Computed example of a mutant assay.
Amino acid sequence: MAATSAVPTAPLPTSGAGGLRSRRPRSERAFRSPADVIVFVVLCLGAITMLLPLAWMLSTSLKTQENVFILPPQWIPDPVEWGNYLRIWEAGPLLSGIVNSSIVSLTVITVGTVTSCYAAYGFSKLRIPGKNAIFLALLAGIMIPFPALMIPTFMLFSQIGWVDTLLPLIVPGLFGNLMMVFFLRQYLMSVPDSLIEAAVIDGATHPQIFARIVLPLIRPAIAAQVILWFMGTWNDYLGPIIYLNSENVHTLQLVIANFNATYAVQTDYPLIMAASIVALLPVLVVFLLFQRQIIESIALTGNKG
């Protein structure tokens, strides 16, 4: 008859000096020194200062014209005028502006992100003669101010018949974003070359290597750059005002600008602020949904050596 051996059980760690630390509530672990309290207070004051204009814009969008400039300022509208958000759709081509801005932003971001990622991969991992010189030349192009390029680019697009269409806003972005290429290239420089070489030895092609190995590693960085690029494209005003003339191709920012020129004279600031809130919502929603990706990409970039 086989003897049964008792299985020793390890004693549960205690909360003493030799055991696990007892978990305190988060409220007790939040501040460890007076400096933490000071930093927290300063950050709260900064956040409130940055949110005040947004809160005032939202409050003004719900006021009547008579209550906009009353003293003392009225932060909570009384009465609340929800009809301002109905009037903006009749005051101008707001819907067509949203559609045009969506076409430009989504097309540029979708195609431009792919080309930027492959360009960054090529500049960081492929053995291309003179790639560093080409990359430095591209970076030098960023230093050229846009006002110096406005007239030549306008003449070019005018000669090929693209003025007063969305093409001047879409086509250049399809070839990528130089800042995104630079950011992703620096991010990819920390990926070991031996990892890429091992995949090449195993018979993988560079598109396969990028899709299966590189893309999962740089996904947070791509997400952060896409968000920032979307915000810049959606809020672009200078490009549309140069190339677009007809009302049916105006982007949302031009529609808002026309609201400002038309209704500011009538002091109809609630209408302008309501339209501005509608223009802000897509950017705000995208940022709130993906803000973790921005923080994660910055944190990972700082930890890579």
Rank of each mutant, 00 (worst) to 15 (best):
V80L: 07
V80I: 12
N84I: 10
N84E: 07
R87N: 15
W89Q: 12
W89P: 03
E90M: 10
E90D: 14
A91C: 07
G92I: 04
P93I: 06
P93Y: 13
L94H: 03
L95R: 08
S96A: 15
S96M: 15
S96T: 13
S101A: 11
S102R: 10
S102A: 15
S102L: 15
S102C: 12
I103L: 11
I103N: 07
V104M: 08
V104I: 15
T110W: 06
T110G: 13
V111M: 09
V111T: 11
G112M: 08
T113G: 11
V114W: 09
V114K: 07
T115D: 00
T115W: 00
S116T: 06
S116M: 08
C117D: 04
C117K: 04
Y118L: 15
Y118N: 09
A119K: 02
A120C: 12
A120D: 14
A120S: 13
Y121W: 13
Y121C: 12
Y121F: 15
F123E: 08
S124Q: 07
R127N: 14
I128E: 13
I128D: 14
I128P: 09
A133Q: 02
A133F: 06
F135G: 08
L139E: 06
L139F: 12
L139M: 15
G141W: 01
G141F: 04
I142G: 05
M143P: 03
I144M: 12
P145W: 00
L149Q: 04
M150N: 02
I151G: 00
P152H: 09
P152R: 14
M155N: 02
M155E: 05
L156I: 15
L156R: 02
F157W: 10
F157A: 01
Q159M: 06
I160T: 13
V163L: 02
V163S: 00
D164R: 12
T165S: 10
L167F: 09
L167G: 10
P168D: 11
I170K: 04
P172T: 00
P172E: 03
P172I: 02
L178C: 11
L178K: 06
M179G: 14
M180I: 05
M180W: 06
V181I: 15
F182V: 04
F183M: 12
F183V: 10
Q186M: 07
Y187T: 07
Y187G: 01
M189F: 05
P192Q: 02
D193K: 03
S194D: 14
S194M: 11
E197H: 09
E197Q: 13
A199F: 05
V200T: 12
I201M: 14
I201D: 05
G203M: 01
A204R: 10
A204H: 08
T205C: 08
P207C: 10
Q208A: 14
Q208R: 15
Q208D: 07
Q208V: 12
I209L: 11
F210S: 00
A211D: 06
A211I: 08
R212F: 09
I213E: 09
V214T: 10
V214N: 04
L215N: 08
